[in-house]
Write a protein that binds this DNA or RNA. Structure first.
Length: 426
RNA sequence: GGAGGGAUGGCAGAGCGGACGAUUGCGACGGUCUUGAAAACCGUUGACCCUCACGGGUCCGGGGGUUCGAAUCCCCCUCCCUCCGCCA
């Protein structure tokens, strides 16, 4: 959620930012109007309220002095004001409610250095690592679902039988590989990131904090009976860890990581990339997330990207890093770098990590604040996050990239200890 | 699922119709002392909104009510804790 004060002090900048990402300017104008109206009514109410308080004090004094008749005259006066005050309060609350509803739907402002552009095609490729289109052999040009079923490590039919399509089921070394990937991602980040295992089902409020609600409810699984939501990413619970708390600046940046399942309905993507593991409803992921001061944010953003990137490289995968343009960053994001791996079997670049800086947009919704060292007052923290590793697409990339002509899959060195010492899947 | 108890400032914890935005302790900050630190002592210290400022207002889990006046009384809701039952 944007800082309402920006609507008052620099409405033009807000409009310019929303325009850069192709957002709805009428919402911004409407919000600015509501804010003006709300403040007007609220000042009127404050004034009345102040008079009522003063009268109450007088009444108290009069009653102490035994001047009951005089007190009753004032009481009658105050009663009338009380009714007017109640009406103003109700109006102010209504306006404030409408304003908040609107504010929850207005997206974040893109960072100044976020590239211009209106969609995917305008994203900037920052670097491409390890990609040699002519160097891939025939065995690498086989889609992972074929290799997986051949080796008996991926059973999509059975997954579909249990839960429907796009719910994968891994077997034997395939299942082990899922676990190995999560484990290695956690272990590599253990030096700085606190490991958390949060709940996978959360309250509505928790989904609102990150911006997944109210706008994107269709993308999430909702358990109606208990009004709980399946988390689409660990970003959701981790961002709310500090909800309504005030942290010490000395504790920032506060770095956390979590291995969790992620649930996505993929409602908007029906029929697209549905083969194999390209797009699934449930998957495992290790997420890195940090709370930072505004000054620390840029450095931490770079740090998360670097960590995600070096792991992909260590897994022997070709990848590229994209600087997403204003038109393609997520609703809550101010700047996002995507890491895409190249999967030779399906001949596609697959997004495996979105490393985002949300400025104070999510933290304001969640009420995660900090107390600047030595200073007065509080500030809103910045949140940053990125996938340390998202299993299915990386799994697919490994299976295709390391598929040898003899049909076996070579296990990348860093995973061997996590695979019980085995160096190949045959 | 049943029965009780609770929700107050960064934290702990008093207050139970008017002088309470709230005693106190801890923490934090500033100072004295010290070569430095600790201890001790003195002082400062809630958040939020409007205002250039003066100042005003809101907030004691949330919502509603009683009252001239509510942290305090009444009603509803949510959450947390304890015990019993069930259970991985």
């Amino acid at each position: 959620m944007l800082d309402v004060r920006l609507l008052r002090t620099d409405l033009e900048a807000v409009e310019a930012g929303i325009a850069r990402r192709g957002g709805d300017l009428s919402q911004v104008e409407r919000a600015a109007e509501l804010d003006r109206a709300q403040r007007r009514v609220s000042s009127e109410r404050d004034e009345l309220r102040s008079r009522i308080k003063r009268i109450s004090e007088e009444v108290a004094g009069l009653r102490r002095d035994g001047r009951i008749d005089d007190a009753e005259v004032l009481q009658a006066e105050s009663r009338l004001m009380g009714e007017a005050e109640k009406a103003l309060a109700a109006e102010s609350d209504t306006l404030a409610g409408e304003l908040r509803e609107l504010l929850l739907r207005i997206p974040n402002l893109p960072a100044p250095d976020c590239p211009d552009g209106s969609g995917e095609g305008d994203n900037v490729v920052l670097r491409v690592v390890g990609y040699e289109p002519d160097a891939y052999g025939g065995s690498q040009r086989v889609p992972h679902w074929e290799i997986g079923s051949e080796l008996g490590i991926l059973d999509l039919e059975r997954g579909a039988k249990l839960s429907g399509s796009m719910f994968p089921l891994y077997r034997k070394a395939g299942a082990q590989l899922v676990r190995a990937l999560c484990q290695v991602a956690l272990d590599r980040n253990r030096d700085l990131y606190e490991e958390i295992r949060p709940p996978s089902l959360v309250r509505t409020e928790t989904m609102v904090s990150t911006g997944h609600l109210p706008k994107f409810g269709d993308d999430a699984y909702h358990i109606e009976r208990d009004d709980l939501w399946g988390i689409p990413t660990a970003e959701v619970p981790l961002t709310s860890m500090g909800r309504d708390e005030i942290l010490d600046e000395a504790d920032l940046p506060m770095r956390m990581m979590a291995y969790t399942p992620c649930f996505r309905r993929e409602a908007g993507a029906a029929g697209k990339d549905t083969r194999g593991l390209l797009r699934v409803h449930e998957f495992d992921k290790v997420e890195l997330l940090a709370y930072a001061t505004p000054e620390q944010a840029e450095g931490v953003h770079a740090e998360i990207l670097e960590r995600a990137e070096t792991l992909i490289e260590a897994l022997g995968l070709a990848y590229r890093v994209l600087d997403l343009c204003c038109g393609d960053i997520g609703n809550s994001s101010a700047r996002t770098f995507d890491i895409e791996i190249y999967a030779p079997g399906v001949d596609q670049w697959l997004e495996v990590s979105s490393v985002s800086w949300f400025s104070d947009y999510q933290a304001r919704r969640a009420g995660v604040r900090y107390r600047p060292a030595g200073g007065k007052g509080t500030g809103v923290v910045h949140t940053l996050n990125g996938s340390g590793l998202a299993v299915p697409r990386v799994w697919a990339g490994i299976v295709e990239t390391h598929h040898r002509p003899d049909g076996a899959i070579r296990i990348p060195d860093i995973l061997v200890p996590y695979m019980g010492g085995q160096q190949t899947i045959t």
